[in-house]
């Protein structure tokens, strides 16, 4: 429910003009012709109207959910993006074994018998499920080559999708706000004509707030991810070595056990030679 207090004391501003223009655009928008993946450029466009390739990604318009009356698209996108990035990073760091210990257990043991690094540093679950959503990674060939060290690349691609969604929304903000509020009112109250048209000043205020938030988010999201990746890549440069050392530890224990058996057998050596004399040859059986 739109708060009635916002109706009082608001003056129409320039934003209303853009709203009218937005209305025109929305009303007159043509249906985008769907293009197949093969016609897309190597760096995929981030617009969400380019066919089914982008259906699985996050950052969708407002949808019918139980909390539709208070749902905010920007909040949802922000929570989804930062939540996903946070989970991928934490999975890479490993889980704390307990609250009062800094020791972390890796979410997966290294596969010491892998034949290449792609198998040795197989991607963990959060990274893999994120990569499956991204158009440039979801291809089976690319997905099979994904390894945990590609985390930075995948996250940067995800950031690009997020920024594209934000920029696209920013460029057509009045139209998007109008559409989303119309949708909300249609679903909640069944209004055939969007009541929101009457509440243009409210939309103007929403537009202004969202612009500030989107601009802040565009600056801080990239800076946050770059700084995080700077930090993470510092210790990740030794992660292959660390995992190899774990494998060497295990191999060393196996060799130790093998040598112990050899030592056990070697204790018989002094006696065994005694058999090797002409007078004591054993016949072939």
């Amino acid at each position: 429910m739109i708060d009635a207090r916002f109706l009082i004391g608001r003056r129409p501003c320039l934003r209303t003009l853009s709203l009218v223009i937005g209305l025109t655009i929305v009303g007159g928008s043509a249906v985008f012709a769907a293009r197949s993946a093969s016609t897309l450029p190597v760096l995929a466009a981030c617009t969400r109207f380019e066919g089914e390739l982008f259906e699985d990604i996050d950052f969708q318009p407002l949808r019918d959910t139980p909390k539709l009356n208070t749902a905010n698209v920007l909040d949802e996108w922000s929570e989804s993006y930062h939540g996903t990035v946070g989970k991928v990073i934490e999975e890479d760091l490993g889980e704390l074994v307990s609250e009062d210990s800094p020791l972390r257990s890796p979410s997966r043991s290294p596969r010491c018998t892998a034949s290449n690094y792609a198998g040795f540093l197989a991607p963990r679950s959060e990274l893999k499920s994120l990569a499956k959503k991204l158009p440039s990674w979801k291809d089976s060939t690319n997905l099979s080559r994904l390894n945990q060290l590609d985390m930075g690349t995948v996250l940067l691609e995800y950031l690009r999708m997020y920024e594209c969604a934000l920029v696209e929304r920013l460029n057509l903000l009045p139209a998007y706000i109008l559409r989303q509020e119309a949708y909300r009112q249609w679903v909640l109250f069944g209004l055939p004509i969007p009541k929101v048209i009457i509440e243009i000043p409210i939309l103007g205020s929403m537009d202004e707030d969202e612009r500030i938030r989107i601009r802040k988010e565009l600056v801080t999201a990239r800076a946050s991810l770059l700084k995080t990746l700077t930090f993470v890549s510092g210790y990740n440069r030794l992660q292959p070595i660390d995992m190899e050392l774990t494998c060497v530890q295990r191999a060393s224990l196996d060799i130790r056990n093998g040598m112990a058996l050899a030592a056990d057998a070697a204790s018989c050596l002094p006696r065994i030679w005694n058999a090797k004399e002409v007078l004591r040859d054993f016949e072939n059986e």
């Binding site: 700084k227 700077t230 930090f231 993470v232 890549s233 510092g234 210790y235 440069r237 030794l238 992660q239 660390d242």
Partner: peptide, 9 residues
Amino acid sequence: LIAGGYEMS
């Protein structure tokens, strides 16, 4: 951040 990341390992 740069130094801390390198020294973490």
